[in-house]
């Protein structure tokens, strides 16, 4: 590939029937999870069934966006040139207060020296791409003013 060819596009989410309400929420700056009406479990990724009890119907709720780092890694070798300009970047799994984990990037002070258990808060990039996707990221709780 010539050095001046454009980097390939990022693999942005293409919402489907299961996930569209989640991504609509992100575009409005809201973190939404599914909640089971039968067993009360919250779940992410979104599904057409409750993966905990398999019986209940699911409702969407806007959640706090607060959570703690469950794990983190600074990625030096990205999966494609689409991510090269940003590398190294810190990918984290954050355990949300409501239970499910979410994957996102850490930014700001949260990314400097992340520790498991650190409190973080989810924020969102501006919507972009044909589906208006606003990817979530997380910052340290004290950064989130």
């Amino acid at each position: 590939m010539p050095a001046d060819s454009p980097a390939p596009a990022r693999p942005l989410p293409v919402p489907n029937a299961d996930t569209a309400p989640f991504w609509e929420g992100c575009a409005r700056g809201e973190l939404r999870l599914q909640r089971c009406t039968a067993c009360g479990a919250a779940q992410l990724p979104p599904r057409a069934v409750c993966a905990a009890c398999h019986t209940g119907s699911l409702t969407w709720e806007v959640v706090s966006g607060r959570g703690r780092i469950a794990s983190h890694t600074r990625v030096h070798r990205p999966p494609s040139t689409a991510f090269k300009a940003e590398a190294p970047y810190v990918v984290a799994l954050v355990a949300l207060e409501e239970g499910p984990r979410i994957m996102l990037h850490l930014r700001g002070a949260a990314a400097a020296a992340p520790r498991i258990g650190d409190a973080v808060r989810v924020r969102f990039d501006p919507p972009s791409g044909p589906h208006g996707i606003a990817l979530p990221y997380a910052v340290a709780t004290e950064d989130s003013a």
Binding site: L12, P13, T19, W23, L44, P79, V91, M103, H105, L135
Partner: peptide, 8 residues
């Protein structure tokens, strides 16, 4: 949708 967009 929930992992690849983050460059993993």
């Amino acid at each position: 949708q929930f992992e690849r967009p983050f460059g993993v």
